[in-house]
Amino acid sequence: MPPCTLQQVWPAPLDVSPEQMALAALRHEIDVLDDQLLALFERRLAIAARVGKAKDAPSGPHLKLRPDREQSVLDRVVAQAAPDNREAVESLWRQIVGWGLARQGRVQVRVWSPVEPTRAFDGARLRFGDAADMKVARDPQAALAWAAEGHGVAVLAINAGDPWWIGLRREWGSLCVFDGFGGETPTALAVGRIDPAALPGGRRVLITAGGDAGDGSGLRRCGLDTHHGWSLSLTDAPVSLGGDEGCVGAIG
């Protein structure tokens, strides 16, 4: 019988400690999982590209963003995750959703935040993922005009010396607030040409005359900003977009 020509790659079993064998087995298991995750992720990207062309995707003047759908997907997967993993799962799924959206066209984001710009950018990056094309806006009015033309999303700071939000009741009626960043009390809002039917379920964003005194509607409100008799606030009441209540969007 001819001599064996195979070269031994791993050390002989006698030279491998039980700890090394266990570590090698765990690494192999991770490699297998990585291969499976990659295959599933690429399948999801392919389906996301098809969704962009499907009949139920927003069309016409609206951006291809479905905050309601994103909210339901995120809520579902986070609820299934172990409590210790929920923060990691939310961050991962934001990236997954963001790259899926990029297959329908990269989300363009303009950020205006003269105070703590890093905080606003971090919130926007977490929301839209690394796939989003994010740039600084020179002023809020330029960002609003850009968003109103349907180019993308404007993320604008509130309580930053410019009451840009009043314009959502006036010249920027085509724009909707659809998210907020900065914690339970937002310090920045995301606005864009969102299909009203696709707004997330959650607190409604109100712009009303009357400052902190309110407008007599009886809605319980959480104030965010005021300017010359105008008030920006949130309410848990299920008010409709537009109308006498001054609803201009929702925050999930």
Rank of each mutant, 00 (worst) to 15 (best):
Q7V: 15
Q7T: 15
P11M: 13
A12E: 11
L14M: 11
V16N: 07
E19H: 13
Q20E: 15
R27C: 14
H28N: 12
I30T: 02
D31V: 09
D34V: 05
L37F: 14
L37T: 13
F41Y: 15
R44V: 10
R50L: 14
R50T: 13
V51Q: 12
V51A: 05
K55W: 06
K55T: 06
K64N: 10
K64L: 13
R66V: 08
R66A: 04
E70L: 01
Q71R: 09
V73T: 05
V78M: 12
V78K: 08
A79K: 09
Q80Y: 06
D84W: 13
N85W: 13
A88I: 05
V89N: 12
R94A: 10
Q104S: 00
V107K: 09
V107T: 14
R110D: 03
V111P: 01
V111T: 15
P114Y: 01
P114W: 10
T118I: 12
R125M: 03
R127K: 15
G129Q: 04
A132F: 06
V136E: 11
A143F: 09
A143R: 08
A145H: 06
A147L: 02
E149D: 08
G150R: 01
H151W: 12
G152Y: 01
A154F: 06
I158F: 04
D162S: 14
D162E: 09
W164T: 06
C176G: 01
V177R: 00
V177W: 00
G182A: 08
G183C: 08
T185C: 07
P186I: 01
A188N: 06
A188K: 10
L189S: 03
L189P: 04
A190G: 14
R193C: 14
A197H: 12
G201Y: 10
R203M: 14
T208K: 04
A209V: 13
D212R: 15
A213S: 15
S217A: 09
S217F: 03
R220L: 12
R221C: 06
C222T: 15
D225T: 07
D225E: 15
H228R: 14
H228A: 12
H228F: 10
S233N: 01
L234F: 02
D236Y: 02
A237N: 00
P238L: 03
S240Y: 00
L241H: 10
G246F: 00
V248D: 01
I251C: 09
